[in-house]
Computed example of a mutant assay.
Amino acid sequence: MKKLKSFGGKNLGGKSMNQLQKIQEEMQKKLQEVEGSFANMEVEVSVGGGAIKIVATADRKVKDIELDEDLLEDGETLKDLLIAGMNELMEKIEKLREEEMAKITQSFLPFGI
C-alpha cells in the first residue's frame, strides 16, 4: 500500500479523490436505501408471559399492541409491562438497525476506506 499523503496530496492509499468521492456517494445512497427499507421491517416483543405483545417497524413506528384483558383490571402491572415491552422493543430495533447499517459499511471495506 502506498504511503498516505496529507493535505494537498493527490493520493490516499492508491485512491484518487474522485474515486473516494464516488465511493462516498455510493455508500450514502445505499445507506439511504436501507433507511427507507426500515419501514417494511417488523420487530415484535412479548412480555409478561405473552400478556402483552408489541409490534413495530424498524423505523420506530408502533403498529400494534395486543394485551390480555385481565391486565385492564391491574393498571400498575399493565404500566410496568408496557414499559418493559417498549424498552425491549427499542433495544431490538436499535440492534436490527445497527446490523443492517453494518452490512452496508462492511461492503465498502474492500475499497480501502
Rank of each mutant, 00 (worst) to 15 (best):
K2H: 02
K2W: 05
K3H: 04
L4N: 08
S6Q: 07
S6C: 05
G8L: 01
G9Q: 07
K10T: 03
K10W: 08
K10L: 06
G13I: 02
K15E: 01
M17C: 05
N18T: 10
N18E: 14
Q19V: 10
Q19R: 08
L20K: 07
L20Y: 00
I23W: 03
E25A: 15
E26C: 05
E26R: 11
M27L: 11
Q28G: 11
Q28Y: 02
Q28A: 14
K30C: 04
K30R: 12
K30I: 04
L31S: 06
Q32R: 12
Q32I: 05
E33M: 10
V34Q: 05
V34A: 03
E35R: 14
G36P: 07
S37E: 08
F38N: 12
F38I: 08
A39R: 13
N40L: 07
M41N: 10
M41H: 12
M41L: 12
V43D: 00
V47Y: 00
G49K: 01
G50A: 04
G50L: 06
A51I: 03
I52K: 05
I54F: 07
V55K: 15
V55E: 01
A56T: 01
A56S: 12
T57S: 09
T57R: 07
A58E: 01
D59Y: 02
R60V: 13
R60H: 15
V62M: 15
V62D: 04
V62A: 09
V62E: 12
V62R: 09
V62T: 14
V62H: 07
D64C: 03
I65T: 07
I65E: 00
E66S: 05
L67R: 12
D70C: 01
D70T: 10
L71A: 02
E73R: 11
E73N: 13
E73V: 11
E73S: 14
D74W: 03
E76M: 11
E76T: 11
L78E: 01
L78H: 00
D80H: 04
L81E: 00
A84G: 13
A84Q: 14
A84Y: 06
A84K: 15
G85S: 10
M86H: 12
M86N: 10
N87V: 14
N87L: 10
E88Y: 04
M90L: 13
M90G: 01
E91V: 13
K92W: 07
I93T: 09
I93Q: 05
E94G: 08
E94T: 14
K95N: 10
K95Y: 01
R97F: 03
E98R: 11
E98C: 03
E100H: 10
E100Q: 13
M101D: 02
A102K: 15
T105G: 10
Q106D: 14
S107M: 06
F108S: 15
F111I: 09
G112T: 08
G112I: 02
G112M: 01
I113N: 06
